[in-house]
């Protein structure tokens, strides 16, 4: 007698230590901790580290200056943390406004009738047809740079893909039997929108925001790096990176390395969390 055939994928039999939901939660907590640590230190650190102290300039990393100091003797750890704090604020604000625009546009396109749909579809195509960075540079240039320019630029360029998704989702949802039935059961449009449609969209909006956030930070850094974003006096990651490029050839590697790695860490951790959430809310992979 042959042994019973037992075929069980590792996800089910516990071949991995934790199931996907547990890993997702751990990743989310870890990212949140990193984020709050950066924000906390960034806000709590005294501004004195940003003052120029020429007697200790160009020092490599040491115990008193963990990330080293730059050509003006400023503490790189303070600069990095302050810069990240600013970047995170800009990223969060830009991602949130982007999602808000996307939600409004998607909703209007799906619910506002044919003409509205056409107009919004046209605007969406317009924004999608130009690369993000070009529009972004244009907008920040017109608005004269600074936090405001970067923020508005990112918010205005990142909504189209998401608005499209929301529109498609709503169009599909509106045709489902249970939504159509709801009006036959005597429910008003507003009631259906808030009870049936909105709860369905919320997870999408959340993941959308988490996905835009790292983009927003990177774009902020890149246009600041190009000199069109924040002013050189502000401790932004983009500024730090662009300035330190000039000193790389002279062997001051720590000027670019630590701020760059910190940026990467924040961006990656958010990417990871949003990827987990996406897998968990997708029905095909929800139970794995």
């Amino acid at each position: 007698m042959k042994p019973d055939n037992l075929a069980m994928p590792d996800t089910a039999s516990g071949g991995k230590w934790l199931n996907r939901r547990q890993r997702a939660v751990i990743a989310a907590i870890a990212s949140a901790m990193v984020l709050f640590a950066v924000l906390g230190f960034g806000l709590a650190l005294p501004g004195s580290g940003l003052d120029a102290r020429l007697e200790i300039r160009n020092q490599p990393p040491s115990l008193s200056h963990l990330f080293g100091t730059d050509w003006l003797g400023r503490d790189m750890l303070t600069r990095t943390l302050k810069g990240l704090t600013l970047s995170i604020f800009v990223g969060l604000a830009a991602a949130a406004s982007s999602v808000l625009i996307a939600a409004i546009m998607g909703l209007a396109a799906a619910m506002g009738g044919r003409y509205m749909d056409h107009i919004i579809g046209w605007i969406t195509d317009l924004f999608l047809s130009v690369p993000h960075l070009v529009t972004l540079i244009l907008i920040s240039f017109i608005l004269g740079g600074g936090v405001k320019g970067v923020l508005i630029g990112i918010a205005v360029t990142h909504w189209p893909a998401m608005a499209r998704m929301i529109r498609a989702e709503l169009l599909q949802l509106r045709e489902t039997d249970y939504v159509r039935l709801s009006s036959r059961l005597g429910r008003s449009r507003w009631w259906i929108a808030t009870r049936h449609l909105l709860p369905h969209l919320l997870p999408h909006l959340l993941t959308g925001m988490l996905l835009i956030f790292p983009h927003a930070i990177l774009h902020e850094a890149s246009i600041t790096f190009l000199g069109l974003g924040l002013s050189p006096h502000q401790p932004a990651i983009g500024i730090i990176l662009s300035e330190s490029m000039r000193y790389l050839s002279t062997g001051l590697w720590w000027l670019a390395f630590f701020p760059g790695a910190a940026l990467l860490l924040i961006v990656r951790s958010f990417d990871r969390v949003s990827e987990y959430i996406r897998l968990l809310i997708h029905p095909a992979s929800a139970q794995e």
Binding site: K2, D4, N5, L6, A7, M8, P9, E288
Partner: peptide, 11 residues
């Protein structure tokens, strides 16, 4: 079968 399913017995 979906990825989160397993089976036992003989076919």
């Amino acid at each position: 079968l979906p990825r989160n399913a397993g089976w036992s017995g003989q076919m």
